[in-house]
């Protein structure tokens, strides 16, 4: 498509130029997500474990059904499932988890041409579908962190029969995540627990610190382009600092904004997917900046408490345009095709 881009770009990201690139990306991403996954199981117990396991299994199954060629070996389905599981509320009925995983792989990935094709990150497609399909479940299926008995029993809602509303009420205090509390004008969590992750939230989004470490590992391994998370987090930091300076009562401080919600998960692990992010360096900066701006705008000015998922989807819709604007001008047409 772009004759000159890989001559000028020294990016380490795998652009499908080597067969081993895909499993390598998947392997390192899974390694980077291990600490936060283990922490999630420690924090939310069996609920987190079940959510992630079901998400992975459902993704593998969907991959098997939709992918005609044996694509299970490249590990992409496992990573999709892991990321999806980490992005969901822990007490969500497991059939919904499986449903979302199926949508992610079937619609988000294979309808758009399979690995390397998708215009949107499959995980985001699955997540946003679940959010729109089951808004009340997604808004209530939170679990209090470090609850007693979490290691031995599943929340009753997890085991709801397929396609049915759970019998039991959602245990979690409705709207208990730090972000929705902020939205409702209530006091937020202390900064330390926000960054350590001892708060309520989606399975794997609570610990900003562990996610940051995982992301840095990926940068160190040259699996992802550091510019994207740098630009994204930088722009969130910048815009929230500005807003906070204007009206500290209404807008949260910079470190709160950075440490809460799905921001870290999205910035390091979703936004950086080579399929949906721009190919040029300048493009990567622009892309991160745009998503960061959208995150702040949606969180602070719309009816939604969390904006990362929407911002990422909109950001990936911008990618083709960013690529176009920032594409280096070829020296001559058609050097190679």
């Amino acid at each position: 498509m772009m004759p000159s881009s890989h001559l000028l770009s020294l990016r380490g990201a795998p652009h499908l130029h080597a067969d081993s690139a895909v499993p390598r990306l998947m392997l390192h991403s899974v390694i980077a997500l291990l600490p936060v996954s283990v922490f999630a199981v420690f924090l939310f117990g069996l609920a987190a474990l079940a959510t992630v396991a079901v998400a992975i299994l459902a993704c593998l199954l969907a991959e098997r059904v939709c992918g005609p060629r044996s694509a299970l070996g490249d590990g992409s389905a496992i990573l999709t499932g892991l990321l999806l599981g980490l992005s969901l509320p822990p007490a969500l009925p497991l059939w919904m988890v499986a449903f979302g995983a199926f949508v992610a792989v079937a619609v988000g990935k294979h309808l758009f041409g399979g690995l390397g094709g998708p215009a949107f990150h499959p995980v985001l497609v699955g997540r946003v579908f679940l959010q729109a399909a089951f808004p009340s479940a997604m808004a209530q299926a939170w679990v209090a962190p470090l609850a007693a008995g979490r290691a031995t029993e599943l929340p009753a809602t997890s085991l709801a029969l397929p396609f049915l509303t759970p019998d039991a009420p959602y245990d979690g205090i409705s709207g208990a995540t730090p972000l929705s509390a902020l939205k409702a004008g209530e006091a937020g969590e202390p900064l330390l627990s926000l960054w350590l992750g001892t708060v309520s939230g989606s399975v794997g989004e609570t610990s900003a610190l562990l996610l940051l470490l995982g992301g840095l590992y990926l940068v160190y391994r040259r699996v992802i382009d550091w510019r994207i998370p740098a630009a994204l987090l930088g722009s969130v930091a910048l815009f929230s600092a500005v807003l906070h300076a204007i009206d500290p009562e209404r807008f949260p401080a910079m470190m709160t904004a950075l440490g809460s919600g799905a921001l870290m998960l999205g910035a390091w692990f979703l936004a950086t997917d080579p399929g949906i992010s721009p190919t040029t360096r300048r493009g990567a900066w622009l892309y991160g900046l745009a998503i960061g701006l959208l995150v702040v705008v949606i969180r602070q000015f719309s009816g939604q408490a969390e904006g990362v998922m929407y911002a990422l989807l909109l950001g990936s819709a911008l990618t083709p345009h960013i690529d176009r604007w920032t594409r280096p001008k070829p020296l001559s047409e058609g050097v190679e095709e």
Binding site: V125, Q131, I298, S302, Q304, M309, Y310, A311, L313
Partner: peptide, 24 residues
């Protein structure tokens, strides 16, 4: 899925993404 169907799915996903702006 080529042609109309994929375009509709695309529009659907964008439509869900625009829900982020709800209430603005």
């Amino acid at each position: 899925a080529q042609g109309m169907a994929i375009t509709l799915v695309l529009a659907g996903i964008l439509s869900l993404a625009f829900m982020g702006f709800a209430g603005m």
